[in-house]
Design a protein around this nucleic acid. Structure first.
Length: 272
DNA sequence: CACGAGACCTGTTCGC
DNA sequence: TGCGAACAGGTCTCGT
C-alpha cells in the first residue's frame, strides 16, 4: 500500500484530528512490540528508554518515511510493503497484524499494523542523517523540469527502476511509476539518457499528476491490508494486464523489470 | 556504474 | 476440497 501518496495521507490523518485525536501534542508513555525487528535502531532497550515520555511535536513525511518530530529526536517509520499506522482507542481489540503499539498518555494508541513484517522504525537525534540520502521530493515546487532533466541525463539506466530508486527520486513506488510512465507514453525500459526533451517534460508532469491524483483519492487500496483509498479505481495500467488501455484499447501487457511486475500499453508506450 | 538474483516475511489468489 | 505456485505497495546486499 504505501508509496508517497499513501504515506502522505497517513501522515495527514495522524495529524488532522478529524476521526481520531491528533497525535501532535500527545505524549508517548510506552512502546510494546511482538516483532522486535520493527526496531532497526537504536537497540530495543535504548529505543524503549528513549521513547518514554517523549512529546510528539509534529508529523510529516519525507519520501516514504513517516517523520514524527519529538521533543527530543525524531522517530522515522518506514511502512515498506504492508505497513499501516493508525490511532486506536486503548480498549480496541488488537488486530491480527498490529505488531507494534505506542501507548499515549491520553489512553489512545498508535498501532503499527504490518502483515509482512518488513516495516522499520528508527529513532534518531538528527533525522537528516537518514533523510539526506533520499533524492528530491517530486511534489516540491523546487523540483523543476530543468533539474529533472539534468538528473536523467546523468544516468544511463532503465527509466522505471531509476524512478523507483529512492536515492534518485523520493517516494515513487511500483504503482505510481507504472501510472506515470503510461501517462507520459514512455516504455518502462527506455534508457534515461536517451529520452527526448519532450518526453522528459511529459514525464515530469505525469509524475506529479499521478501522485496528486493518488493523494486526492486518499491513496490506493488493493489488498486486505489497506482500506479507505479510492485511487485503485482509476488505474490506467497498473494491475490491468489484458484489460484495454484507456487511451487506445490495446490490451495492457505485463512484464518484469527490476524484479517488479510492470504494466504498460504496447501501443502507447512503444519499446523503440 | 548498471543490473539481476536472493533475502527478508506472510497472506491471498490462481491453476490443476 | 486440497495443495503448491505465483504474486503482492519495498529495500538491502552480493555477484557479474
Amino acid at each position: 500500500m504505501p508509496e508517497l501518496p499513501e504515506v502522505e495521507c497517513i501522515a495527514r490523518k495522524l495529524k488532522d484530528g478529524k476521526e481520531t485525536p491528533s497525535i501532535v501534542g500527545q505524549k508517548i508513555v510506552k512502546v510494546s512490540t511482538r516483532w522486535p525487528k520493527h526496531i532497526e535502531s537504536p537497540s530495543i532497550t535504548t529505543f524503549r528508554r528513549k521513547i518514554r515520555d517523549r512529546l510528539i511535536e509534529d508529523v510529516g513525511r519525507r519520501g516514504k518515511y513517516l517523520v514524527l518530530t519529538l521533543d527530543e529526536g525524531s522517530l522515522l517509520i518506514h511502512l515498506r510493503m504492508s505497513g499501516d499506522l493508525r490511532v486506536a482507542p486503548g480498549d480496541e481489540i488488537r488486530g491480527r497484524f498490529d505488531h507494534s503499539v505506542f501507548y499515549l498518555e491520553s489512553g489512545w494508541q498508535i498501532r503499527f499494523s504490518d502483515a509482512r513484517k518488513f516495516g522499520k522504525m528508527i529513532l534518531v537525534e538528527n533525522p537528516a542523517e537518514i533523510l539526506n540520502k533520499l533524492g528530491p521530493e517530486p511534489l516540491d515546487p523546487g523540483f523543476s523540469l530543468e533539474i529533472f532533466s539534468h538528473m536523467l541525463k546523468n544516468k544511463k539506466r532503465m527509466i522505471k527502476p531509476l524512478l523507483m530508486d529512492q536515492a534518485f527520486l523520493a517516494g515513487m513506488g511500483n504503482i505510481y511509476t507504472d501510472e506515470a510512465l503510461h501517462i507520459a507514453k514512455i516504455h518502462p525500459s527506455r534508457k534515461s539518457n536517451e529520452l527526448l526533451e519532450i518526453q522528459i517534460r511529459s514525464l515530469w508532469s505525469a509524475i506529479r499528476m499521478a501522485l496528486q491524483a493518488g493523494i486526492h483519492n486518499n491513496g490506493a487500496s488493493i489488498d486486505w491490508v489497506y482500506k479507505g483509498g479510492e485511487f485503485q479505481n482509476q488505474f490506467r495500467a497498473y494491475q490491468r494486464t489484458g484489460q484495454p488501455c484507456p487511451v487506445c484499447e490495446t490490451p495492457i501487457e505485463r512484464t518484469v523489470l527490476g524484479q517488479r511486475g510492470t504494466h504498460f500499453c504496447p501501443n502507447c508506450q512503444p519499446e523503440k
